[in-house]
Design a protein around this nucleic acid. Structure first.
Lengths: 191, 191
DNA sequence: TTTATTTGATAACAAATGTTATCGTTGGCG
DNA sequence: CGCCAACGATAACATTTGTTATCAAATAAA
């Protein structure tokens, strides 16, 4: 699982073995809750196989905010970093193989990583990149119609369309399930 | 302008004097463009007095994505960091007093700051905090009605309501100017 | 002051989107 | 294999929101 990343970490073999040993492998069936609402996040997940969504309950409505797939890392990020109760639930969509690392071990790695200029800069770049992604995402709500957001998703993240049940997709796009169905239907008939 | 921040920077007086000398003061009337669309961002701004908005032209429509006030720093962030053409315009709303620092000088400071653990961690925290803010912002588009978003804004960022012309606010909230007017009117009559 | 520009409210109508309900299909599981 | 739950499509109707146009008020500039 981790060997493919080895060349990206200019650290000693000893460190590498230590760091990778921090990770724990689990297999989770579909619809397994990995983090509950209100729970303080103690684990960061990395997906080897499968697919995860982040969602929360808003007055009885199930609203999905993000999807994650193979090789992506997932956490209730603000909860993980600040050790607040998580406002969101993390849940598998498909049966998944997942590796997790504890907050403590992750902090240990980060402390050391921050002293290595190359890794530290990559870490900072990563955070910035996430920020840019979120900016694009919220701008799309100001700029685009739901139909346009759907088309953009097909272009940019086809995995989501292909692997995620449509009713999860709807709230992610900010529309009702019925309306998403209508959007698809209109697109088909226009063609 | 900068002395009030002095105690937050555990660096030598020499460094402090050097760093603050990088900044340039300008006074700009209302509706001054500080960065044009398509221009590569070379300056980071800090607002001493006044108010700035970030916006872009979308098929002839003026869409505002952010507002900034006293003591906040502003840039077309992705453009500033990656040196891409900026997709957005940065413009004063009120007559403003602004300090700017060049990309080069800022990079110089950052390189040194990254070696000071306390400052480096504060810098990373700042980036994370911005990320969290953007997450909250986009979640509000999934979760809340425009009316609710307006009410939340009154609670959390009253400055925006008080100082920003309403038609800029509308696109920020993701509605038309007419509809924002309706929202206000309904709220008044319900009370 | 006078005038032009900016800003905001409102009405009337059109379009988009939500809600509720029904039905058919699919796929996992006993 | 058969059943049940999950999923998605569709219709009918209600509500929200956008568009265009007009007018009034406030503000800035001449």
């Amino acid at each position: 699982m981790f060997t493919k990343f080895r060349n990206k970490f200019p650290i000693s073999d000893e460190r590498w073995i230590e760091y990778t040993s921090y990770f724990n492998r689990i297999e989770a069936p579909a619809k397994t809750t990995l983090l509950e609402e209100g729970e303080v996040s103690k684990k960061l997940f990395i997906i080897e196989k499968g697919c995860i969504r982040v969602w929360f309950n808003n007055n009885g409505k199930d609203l999905t905010t993000q999807f994650f797939f193979e090789n992506q890392s997932v956490a209730s990020i603000e909860s993980f970093i600040k050790q607040f109760p998580s406002p969101v639930v993390i849940e598998t969509i498909e049966p998944s193989v997942i590796w997790w690392i504890s907050k403590n071990d992750m902090d240990k790695i980060l402390e050391e990583v921050k002293e290595i200029p190359e890794l530290r800069d990559r870490f900072i770049d990563m955070i910035f990149q996430r920020t840019f992604d979120y900016i694009r995402h919220f701008v799309s709500f100001i700029k685009d119609s739901p139909t346009q957001r759907y088309l953009t998703l097909i272009e940019e993240k086809p995995q989501i369309i292909q692997r995620v049940p449509q009713h999860y997709l709807a709230s992610y796009l900010g529309v009702s399930t019925v309306h998403l169905s209508r959007i698809k239907s209109k697109l088909v008939h226009k063609k």
